[in-house]
Design a protein around this nucleic acid. Structure first.
Lengths: 210, 210
DNA sequence: CATTTATTAGACGATCGGTCTATTAAATCA
DNA sequence: TGATTTAATAGACCGATCGTCTAATAAATG
């Protein structure tokens, strides 16, 4: 049963094979921007449509609902950062601890680039949970669990390299980091300043080196 | 010029002398509950009105707008916690560090009591800043600054008592605490669990004792 | 009782998320 | 080519809900 042997269907085929569409992609892009800025509830479909230059009718061609759209945004955002963490944490040109520092520096630069107007999509939606459809909860928790797991791996490498005290539990440390880091991102957005990020990062590194 | 000598105005007098009103108070109570749960944007006036058992028309008699209502809620919430911190941090039956631990334990118990459905009003609105009227920003920053200042005082007392290392800067530590603690509250709400609070608190105390 | 003001009641327009039908575009097979 | 089939766009439309406002009512006054 070769895929190539399946007879082509009549009629117009999808624009691209694997569910890809430029229109769809621009909806996702615009959605990510707005949701990192304003969250899910406060963001109307219309403003996303306007930014993306896409008529409303198209939206419901590509997505079943606003909720399904949100689900996809969380997935993409989670995967994007998972990839970013993976890249930083596998950079063997640096020591394990320096990889974490580099990730933080990258995130700080990103927040500054957007004038501290955009936060973390997962943190934003987490804060909104009281007003969000329940299925979002597990999805958001899973993203944090994934990020934490990757971070714990890098911390274990740092431990093996003798960069941080071996009394620490890497999983606890990773949890501590993501709990606090999300707080720092929130605060940086509120104060429009990078100093909360620096304050937290500095404290974190002081802590783990002991 | 005695206040009592001011001639009474004609017409129906206010229900109570000093701007107090049971109706108004119940609006504030209901508002605080909903805003700690769902934030400002996602909370409709109608649901607050319904809980408080107050007709919509009355709301705009007591408050100029939803925004003015929010401003007052932030003030009240900020002052409520300022008082709470003051009580804990002036409790001379405990050591300075134990006072902070007691405050944290109290907050953990409060979150558990509400089944982790309510977060911090200031943190919630901070996250929403992208969608909130600009004047809220300074107000929220000021509340954090106040809480941090009180916390720094207690940390200095702990330093004087030799409970924490003197290399630490108390102001930095207080900033670090509130940055991370808000992250922990957010996460606890998301995961419906107290463990993020415990994870952060434990890490924080480990850190400051060195 | 006429007057004044507190308080309530609900109408109001705007906008929300979501659905719908109609139309246009692009590929197919005969 | 031309009829056919489906992808994709276009935007009118719906009920619900948003925050605001005006008109009416209630309660006190001199």
């Amino acid at each position: 049963m070769d895929v190539a042997n399946v007879p082509r269907r009549r009629g117009r085929p999808p624009k691209a094979a694997a569910g890809f569409s430029e229109t769809r992609a621009s909806l996702v892009r615009a959605g990510l921007v707005r949701l990192t800025e304003k969250g899910f509830t406060a963001t109307g479909l219309d403003e996303i449509l306007k930014v993306a230059g896409v008529p409303k009718g198209s939206f419901y061609h590509y997505f079943d609902s606003k909720g399904a759209f949100g689900t996809e945004l969380i997935d993409r955002y989670g995967a994007y950062f998972a990839g970013k963490l993976e890249r930083f944490f596998n950079d063997h040109s640096r020591s394990p601890l320096a990889r974490i520092e580099a990730f933080i520096a990258d995130a700080e630069a990103a927040m500054e680039r957007f004038a501290y107007s955009r936060g973390c999509l997962v943190g934003n939606l987490g804060q909104e949970m009281g007003a969000l459809p329940e299925p979002f909860r597990q999805q958001l928790c899973d993203v944090f669990a994934d990020w934490q797991h990757r971070t714990a791996g890098c911390l274990r490498a740092a431990q093996a390299a003798g960069e941080i005290g071996s009394l620490h539990n890497a999983d606890n440390l990773a949890a501590f980091f993501w709990i606090g880091w999300e707080g720092a991102v929130l605060r940086a957005k509120l104060e429009r300043s990078g100093s909360p990020l620096q304050t937290f990062a500095e404290g974190f590194f002081t802590m783990i080196r002991t």
